[in-house]
Amino acid sequence: MNTTQALLEVRDLTVDYDLGGAAAWRRRTTTVLQGVGFTIAPGETYGLVGESGSGKSTTGRAVLRLADVTGGSIRFDGTDLATFGRETPLSYRRDVQAVFQDPAASLNPRHRVGRAVTDALRRHGVRGQRVREERAAEAFEQVGLQRAHLDRYPAEMSGGQLQRVAIARALVLRPRLVVCDEAVSALDLSTQSQIINLLADLQAQTGVSYLFIAHDLGVVRHISDRIGVLRRGVLVEEGTTHEIFTAPRHPYTRALLAASPASQPAGREERRARRLAVRAAAA
């Protein structure tokens, strides 16, 4: 809210995707994000919810400079990312890290998982393999893995463990913002709650901010301070977690909340009748 203190400030962000067309005059584009704006304060978790195609991942990719921005601005710590030019400075790469949905796919199956962490350290100028391994081991312990896990291959680990490796890789560089794109969606319930709590603990320890992108409203509710609701590339509603869940203003937010399964069976007949009525009314 307080723009002077914002760590990340996204303003009027617009992203077009190229649909191909060989020549410049035949090129067609589609707008996947339109005028999206939000801020994230240091130590804050900003939840971004929406369904597939809503542009929530694109927002994360734009912040990570993995997607080309068509319009608007993204400022990190006061610096407009557009001033970087084509090359992203190493310092930004260190400050802004990412954890993605599929940990198995984001780790090379042929490398021992410890290498994912030591490689990141080497890239960021930490000298000495011994030092790097030591820091990797510390990072592993920080995320609840053991030193012995450093020498495992991805295939030998569970999904939850692999996601811990991914988090260790992201946090070992002491970033200030981590983009978590569906970071717990692929995990089992008991593992999921462990990882959610781990992320919260690490935030308490290091003051890192999260841009937490997820489709699961329950997960977002539990981790976010503030939430933005994206629909077809437009931020339709923004508010504190409490506001979004107790007094949603936009009809789409209300529809999303109505569609998410409840935590217990009580009242489900009424919920079903209500859903059918809403769909019938919309038809």
């Binding site: 319930l189 709650s193 919260a200 329950g218 509710r221 869940f245 998410s260």
Partner: peptide, 24 residues
């Protein structure tokens, strides 16, 4: 019981999710 407790749901507000230590 532990599963039910660990379930982050949109219609429920708890500060910290209870977890199940260890893994399957």
């Amino acid at each position: 019981a532990a599963l039910l407790a660990a379930h982050p749901s949109a219609d429920r507000d708890v500060d910290r999710l209870p977890t199940i230590p260890g893994r399957v």
